[in-house]
C-alpha cells in the first residue's frame, strides 16, 4: 500500500466523519457524535501515517525530503492541521457542532488534493531553491496558522447563523454554543493563528534571505500574506482596544479567511510573470 492510497482513503474517512457530525447535529444523536469523533481521530491517524509514508517513499526514490514541497503535500498537511485543531477544541469545549463544519472542510481539502487534474500527487525531487530547512519551518507554521483561521472561519459562520435566532433553545440553532462562547472561540483561534502567521511570514522571509539575499520582495504571494496579516491585526485591535464583539468580529474573521484562501490559491490566478510575458508581446 502506498501513501497515496492511504491518503485517498483518508478523504473518504473525513467525509464519513463529517456526515456523522452533521447527522448528530441535525438529528440530535449523541451516539453518532461519539462515533464521529472516533472516525475523525482515525482519519487524522491515517493522514499522519500517509505523510510519514510519503516521507519514507521519497527516500526510497533516492531524493528524500520532507513531504511539504508542493501543492498536493501542503493540502494534505493543511487537512491534517484543520482536523487536529478541531479535535483539540472538541476536547476542550465538549461541543461537537464545529465538527459538522471542519470535517467536511478537511474532506474537501483532501478531495481537491487527490482529484484535481491540475495537482500532481507524484513525489518530485526538490528544485535547488526549496532545499532549505527554513522551507519546512515555513510550511509547517503557515499551515498550522491557516488551519486555525479555517476553524475560526467556521465558528464565525456559526456565530452569524446563531445570531439569526439567538434565543432558540432547541433545534439545530439551539444546539450551537452560546453567542459569547462562539465569539470567544473565534478570538482564541485567531490569536493562535496570528502567532503562527507571524512565524510563518518570518520564516519565509528568512528563507528568502538565505536563498536570494532579500527578505522581502513584494511578490504577490508575500504581499497577500501581508494583507492577511493586516486584516487579522485589524481584528485584534478592534476587539482588544475598541471592544468590538460578535458580528463585526465574525465578518472580519470571514474576510481574513478569504485573504488566506487568496494567498494560498488565488495568487496563481494573478497576472504574474506568465501572463506578463503574454502581455509584452
Amino acid at each position: 500500500m502506498t501513501s497515496s492510497v492511504i491518503l485517498s482513503a483518508v478523504t473518504f474517512i473525513y467525509g464519513f466523519a463529517g456526515f456523522l457530525y452533521i447527522f448528530a447535529w441535525v438529528f440530535k444523536k449523541p451516539a453518532a457524535g461519539k462515533m464521529a469523533t472516533g472516525v475523525a481521530i482515525f482519519g487524522l491517524a491515517g493522514n499522519a501515517a500517509g505523510i510519514g509514508m510519503r516521507w519514507v517513499e521519497s527516500y526510497q526514490l533516492g531524493f528524500g525530503h520532507a513531504p511539504l514541497s508542493n501543492l498536493y503535500e501542503s493540502l494534505v498537511f493543511f487537512a491534517g492541521c484543520i482536523t487536529l485543531i478541531y479535535l483539540v477544541i472538541e476536547r476542550r469545549y465538549a461541543n461537537q457542532v464545529i465538527g459538522a463544519f471542519s470535517a467536511p472542510l478537511a474532506c474537501l481539502t483532501m478531495a481537491y488534493a487527490s482529484l484535481s487534474p491540475n495537482i500532481s500527487d507524484r513525489i518530485q525531487p526538490l528544485i535547488p531553491a526549496l532545499k532549505s530547512n527554513w522551507l519546512i519551518a515555513h510550511v509547517v507554521t503557515c499551515f498550522i496558522g491557516y488551519g486555525a483561521f479555517a476553524v475560526a472561519f467556521g465558528v464565525s459562520l456559526m456565530y452569524l447563523f446563531k445570531q439569526s435566532e439567538p434565543d432558540a433553545a432547541s433545534g439545530m440553532i439551539g444546539r450551537l454554543p452560546t453567542l459569547e462562547a462562539l465569539d470567544e472561540l473565534t478570538h482564541q483561534l485567531i490569536v493562535f493563528g496570528f502567532l503562527f502567521l507571524c512565524v510563518g511570514i518570518i520564516t519565509g522571509a528568512v528563507w528568502a534571505n538565505s536563498a536570494w539575499g532579500r527578505y522581502w520582495g513584494w511578490d504577490p504571494k508575500e504581499t497577500w500574506s501581508l494583507i492577511t496579516w493586516f486584516v487579522y491585526a485589524t481584528l485584534l485591535h478592534a476587539r482588544m482596544t475598541r471592544g468590538w464583539r460578535g458580528r463585526r468580529i465574525a465578518y472580519l474573521s470571514i474576510i481574513g479567511f478569504a485573504a488566506v484562501m487568496f494567498t494560498y490559491f488565488g495568487v496563481n490566478l494573478l497576472p504574474g510573470l506568465h501572463s506578463y510575458q503574454a502581455m509584452s508581446k
Binding site: W218, P220, L226, V267, L270, Y276
Partner: peptide
Amino acid sequence: SIIGTLIP
C-alpha cells in the same frame, strides 16, 4: 496592497 498584486 492588493493593487500592486493586480498590476505587474
